[in-house]
């Protein structure tokens, strides 16, 4: 146990230093993921055009929703599929495989520590957004903020496991990264970064409930904006834990099967 903690601590500090060397790139990636902000502009214009509110959302409701969505999207972003694909196909996985630690943890710590490099920039943009649209407020209640921290961390871990599983497909296909792009396209429309899910046709809302997508952005956003009550928060955390379990199993299975094939791609 103590040695596991020590491993985590060392990996975190070293990867934090590593990621800090890439802060300029991180800012660019952050700005590139600005779709929720564009959608915020479109929906605000729409609410204004229809006389102050559309579907029960006022301009400042939209601002709060999309700012929270932007924040969540920044927290859950994962590029490990691309990284793994590269490692597997170029053979860089080999040195990592020969260490007595599942390479998963190193990738995971790399991503987790990167969040903390992002943090100051995220807060700056968040506050700029809150000031730019008058009357916009996120929840002032400490309980909701804490619940959001839990929801967002779980969402990040689920997304990371999805990306990791997709990346592991590089053991079988040349095009694992293309599959991750599919994920991005689907996520852009189904996680809630395009519009609050209540604007979607009912059958899509019902179908999406059975996927992890709304639990990555939509529900965490409801927690941060204060729209979710305690029973809803508990339900969201429960479903997220279930998805976490499912993806952990999927990843473990792909990892076990994939290793048998490693090297056949010329590593």
């Amino acid at each position: 146990m103590r040695s596991a903690l020590n491993k985590g601590r060392v990996l975190f500090t070293v990867w934090f230093a590593h990621m800090s060397a890439y802060r300029a790139e991180i800012i660019i990636w952050m700005l590139a993921g600005s779709v929720p902000l564009i959608m915020m502009a479109v929906w605000i214009a729409k609410a204004q055009a229809s006389g102050g509110a559309t579907g029960g959302f006022t301009p400042s409701d939209f601002a709060a929703y999309f700012l929270a969505a932007w924040l969540t999207q920044q927290i859950i972003v994962a590029w490990v599929a691309w990284e793994l694909d590269h490692h597997i196909r170029q053979g860089h996985l080999s040195p990592k495989l020969l260490r007595p630690l599942d390479p998963f943890w190193e990738f995971f710590m790399g991503h987790a520590s990167e969040r903390f490099v992002r943090l100051p920039f995220m807060l700056v943009i968040l506050f700029a957004g809150l000031i730019l649209v008058p009357g916009t407020r996120l929840t002032p209640d400490a309980g909701h903020v804490l619940a959001y921290a839990a929801c967002a961390s779980l969402a990040f871990t689920i997304r990371f496991l999805i990306a990791y599983s997709i990346g592991l497909l590089a053991f079988w296909f040349d095009q694992a990264t293309a599959l991750d792009e599919f994920y991005y396209v689907a996520a852009a429309f189904l996680t809630g970064t395009f519009a609050p899910l209540e604007f979607y046709p009912p059958f899509i809302q019902a179908a999406v409930e059975w996927t992890p997508f709304p639990y990555l952005v939509y529900y965490p956003v409801r927690v941060l904006t204060g729209a979710a009550d305690t029973p809803e928060i508990l339900r969201v955390l429960g479903v997220q834990l279930a998805w976490l379990l499912v993806m952990t199993l999927v990843r473990a299975l792909l990892w076990k099967q994939g290793l048998k094939r490693y090297g056949a791609v010329g590593a």
Binding site: V14, A17, A21, Y22, P100
Partner: peptide, 23 residues
Amino acid sequence: QKQQLLWDLPALDSFLVNQAIYE
């Protein structure tokens, strides 16, 4: 032809990682 050291950090950091991983 393949390396395990972290490219953008001093080698000492990679040593610390290995120290932790190999306990």
